[in-house]
Measured scan of single mutants.
Amino acid sequence: KDKDLLKGLDQEQANEVIAVLQMHNIEANKIDSGKLGYSITVAEPDFTAAVYWIK
């Protein structure tokens, strides 16, 4: 199951987060929520590491 990592990002921010996570071998998903911006989700086992790397 995926957990929400970040919400309300613009496309550039979302792409930067995806890139950082991929560099650390964390699979992440970018979801277009329309006017609400983009959300990033990661698998539950990767959540703690993902939070660490996006600081």
Rank of each mutant, 00 (worst) to 15 (best):
F47E: 03
I26S: 00
Y52R: 05
Q22S: 11
Y38P: 00
E44Q: 06
K1D: 08
E16K: 13
A49S: 08
V17I: 14
I54L: 12
V17T: 04
L36I: 06
L5W: 03
I18L: 10
Q11M: 12
A14P: 01
L5S: 02
Q13K: 10
I26A: 02
F47V: 04
E16M: 14
A14V: 05
D32M: 08
Q11C: 13
V20I: 14
Y38T: 01
D4T: 15
D4G: 08
K30L: 14
L9M: 05
N29I: 12
I18S: 01
L5H: 02
E44H: 09
Q13D: 05
F47P: 00
A28S: 06
T41H: 06
V17F: 10
Q22Y: 10
D2W: 15
L9N: 01
I54R: 01
N29Y: 11
G34F: 04
N15M: 09
V51P: 00
K35F: 09
L21Q: 03
V17D: 00
K35V: 13
K1I: 11
W53F: 07
V42F: 01
L6A: 06
N15G: 04
E16I: 13
K7M: 11
K35N: 12
V42R: 00
L21G: 01
Q11L: 15
S39W: 10
Q13Y: 09
Q22I: 11
G37H: 05
D4F: 15
S33V: 11
A19C: 11
D4R: 12
A50Y: 05
G34P: 04
A28P: 02
K7T: 15
T48W: 14
L9S: 01
G34E: 04
F47S: 01
K30I: 15
I54P: 01
V20S: 04
H24C: 07
A14K: 02
E44K: 06
K30E: 03
S33W: 15
A14G: 01
A49R: 10
T41V: 10
E27N: 14
I40A: 00
L36V: 06
A43H: 08
Y52I: 08
A49W: 09
E16C: 15
H24F: 06
A14E: 03
N25W: 05
A14Y: 03
I54F: 05
D2K: 11
Y52T: 05
L6V: 10
D32L: 11
E16F: 14
Q22E: 08
E27M: 15
K35G: 11
N25L: 07
K3M: 12
V51S: 09
V51T: 07
Q22D: 04
I40S: 00
A19E: 07
D2C: 13
Q13M: 09
M23F: 09
P45S: 15
L5F: 07
Q11Y: 12
L6R: 02
A49F: 07
V17R: 01
Q22A: 14
L6N: 02
A43C: 06
P45N: 13
D2I: 13
T48S: 12
A50C: 05
E27L: 13
G34M: 04
V51N: 09
K3H: 06
G37Q: 06
A43N: 06
A50Q: 00
D10K: 09
A43Y: 07
Q22H: 10
L36Y: 13
I18K: 01
K30F: 08
Q11R: 11
S39R: 13
I26P: 00
I31M: 05
Y38A: 01
H24W: 05
K3L: 12
G37M: 06
Q11S: 12
H24S: 04
Q11H: 11
A19D: 04
I26F: 01
A49L: 10
D4H: 14
D4W: 15
K55Q: 14
A28F: 10
K55S: 14
V51C: 13
G37P: 02
A50I: 03
T48C: 14
V42A: 01
N25T: 04
Y52G: 07
N29K: 14
Y52W: 08
Q11G: 07
V20A: 06
I31D: 02
S39L: 11
N15K: 07
T48R: 11
W53P: 03
E27S: 14
A43F: 06
A49V: 07
L9E: 02
G37T: 08
K55E: 15
E27T: 13
V17E: 00
Y52C: 11
S39E: 06
K35W: 10
V42Y: 02
W53T: 03
G8M: 05
Q22T: 06
N15H: 07
A49M: 12
N25R: 06
E12H: 12
M23P: 01
S33K: 15
K30S: 09
K55P: 09
L21E: 00
P45T: 14
L21C: 03
Y38S: 01
L9G: 02
K3A: 08
Y52Q: 08
V20C: 11
Q13R: 12
V20R: 07
K7F: 12
G8Y: 09
E27R: 14
S39K: 13
V20Q: 06
K30Q: 07
I26M: 02
K7Q: 12
M23E: 08
L6H: 02
A43E: 05
N15C: 11
K30C: 12
L6Y: 07
E12K: 12
K1G: 11
P45R: 15
K1E: 08
G37L: 08
K55T: 15
D10M: 07
Y52N: 07
T48A: 15
G37R: 05
E27F: 13
W53H: 06
W53Y: 08
K3W: 09
I40D: 00
N29V: 11
A50P: 00
Q22F: 10
D10H: 07
I18G: 00
I26W: 00
L6F: 11
Y38N: 01
Y52A: 08
V42L: 04
E44Y: 08
D2E: 11
K7H: 14
M23D: 05
F47I: 04
I31K: 10
M23K: 10
W53Q: 02
E12P: 04
N25G: 15
D32H: 10
I54A: 05
D10E: 06
I54M: 07
V20N: 05
A19W: 12
L36Q: 11
D10L: 07
A49C: 15
Q13T: 13
Q13N: 03
I54Y: 05
L6P: 02
D46C: 08
A43W: 06
V17Q: 01
A43S: 10
L5N: 02
K1S: 09
I18E: 02
A19G: 07
L36W: 12
T41M: 08
G34A: 04
I31H: 09
E12Q: 12
V17H: 02
E16T: 12
A28M: 01
S33F: 15
G34W: 04
Y38L: 06
K1T: 09
S33G: 15
L9Q: 01
K30H: 03
K55W: 14
D10G: 07
A50K: 02
E16N: 12
D32W: 14
I54Q: 02
S33T: 12
E44M: 07
D2G: 11
D46I: 05
N29T: 13
S39G: 07
K1W: 09
G37V: 07
A19V: 06
Y38G: 00
A14D: 01
E16R: 14
A50L: 03
L6W: 05
I18M: 10
N15L: 09
W53M: 03
A50W: 02
E12Y: 10
A50F: 03
D10S: 15
A49E: 11
G34Y: 05
A28W: 07
N15E: 11
E44P: 07
V17M: 08
L6D: 00
I31C: 06
Y52H: 10
G37Y: 05
I31N: 07
W53S: 02
V42H: 02
Y38D: 00
A50V: 03
D4N: 10
G34I: 03
D4C: 15
I40W: 02
I18H: 03
K3C: 12
V20K: 09
N29M: 11
